[in-house]
Amino acid sequence: MSPLGPGDVACWVLKSTRPPELIEPGWRVGTARELTRCVRRSYRLDLVRPGQPCLLWISGRTAPGVHALGEVTGEAEERDGGPVVAVRLTRLPSPVARADLLADPAARDAEVLRMPAGSNPSWLSPEQYAAVLAHLPPRPDAALGPWPT
């Protein structure tokens, strides 16, 4: 498989095994948090740019899937523990379930579904990202408009 190019990535996928309430205590549904997420050193970090869409994927046995949606807010940078990327994520009221995405023909071949232990960040193509957006739960406060994309 050839390396990704800028036009291949519609959304970055940042993975964790910890649910949102353990990543950021007090993180309420529908609210955004500025977070710094650890990522793996690779050529992909050169493609990550502020303003690009990203999402938080929780893996494991309990509610695997998309738990938050947002955007990259900073360039990938080195810290003491390794590379990190700054993001702003809004917590969803319920996850977009892994099972729903596996059943969706547009999403089922996403890297995060095919290789759950693969690179962090992972990525979604435009078609895969559109499928995730189509599965988003309703926003609890409709006055805020649609989910950030």
Rank of each mutant, 00 (worst) to 15 (best):
V112P: 02
A10D: 07
L55A: 03
S42G: 13
P146S: 15
A10P: 03
T90Y: 01
A76I: 03
T62W: 13
D141Y: 07
L89P: 00
P137R: 06
E34M: 12
G5Q: 11
A107T: 07
P53Y: 03
L47Q: 07
K15C: 05
P64C: 04
L89V: 01
M115T: 14
R41N: 13
C38N: 12
S42M: 10
R139T: 01
S122V: 05
V132T: 07
E111G: 08
G5K: 12
P105Y: 11
A97Y: 02
P53Q: 07
S122H: 08
M1E: 14
W123N: 02
R49E: 13
R91S: 01
A107L: 09
C11E: 01
S42Y: 04
E21H: 12
D46Q: 03
R91L: 12
S125V: 06
E24G: 01
L124A: 06
E24V: 09
D8K: 07
S59Q: 13
P148E: 04
C54A: 08
L89G: 01
P126S: 08
A143W: 03
E127K: 15
P140R: 11
R18T: 08
R49D: 08
E77T: 10
E34K: 13
R114I: 10
R91E: 00
G7E: 12
A110V: 15
Y43D: 15
L22S: 05
P138N: 08
E77L: 12
D100V: 13
L35K: 01
L124M: 14
R98S: 09
L4I: 04
P140H: 07
E21M: 04
D141S: 15
I23T: 02
E34F: 05
V66A: 02
V48W: 03
S119Y: 03
E75V: 10
S59P: 02
A97R: 15
D80F: 05
S94Y: 06
L22H: 14
L47W: 08
D8V: 07
R114T: 13
D141H: 14
S125E: 05
R139S: 04
K15V: 01
T31L: 10
C38T: 06
S42W: 02
C11I: 05
N120S: 04
T31G: 06
W12S: 00
A110E: 05
G70Y: 00
P138C: 04
W57M: 02
L136Y: 06
L14Q: 08
D8F: 11
R40N: 14
R139E: 06
S119N: 11
P93L: 03
L56D: 00
P19C: 05
L144Y: 02
P20M: 03
S42A: 09
E21C: 01
E21R: 04
A106S: 14
I23G: 00
E24L: 04
R114H: 07
R41T: 14
T17P: 00
A32S: 11
V66N: 04
P64R: 02
S122M: 05
S122W: 04
R88Y: 03
A143V: 10
A131L: 10
G5D: 15
A63W: 15
W123I: 06
E111A: 15
D104M: 13
L136V: 08
M1V: 14
R79K: 14
P146Q: 11
P95T: 09
A106R: 15
R18C: 04
P148L: 11
H135L: 11
I23S: 00
W147T: 01
R28E: 10
T73Q: 07
P126E: 05
A134N: 07
E71C: 12
R114V: 14
V48Y: 04
A107P: 10
G81Y: 12
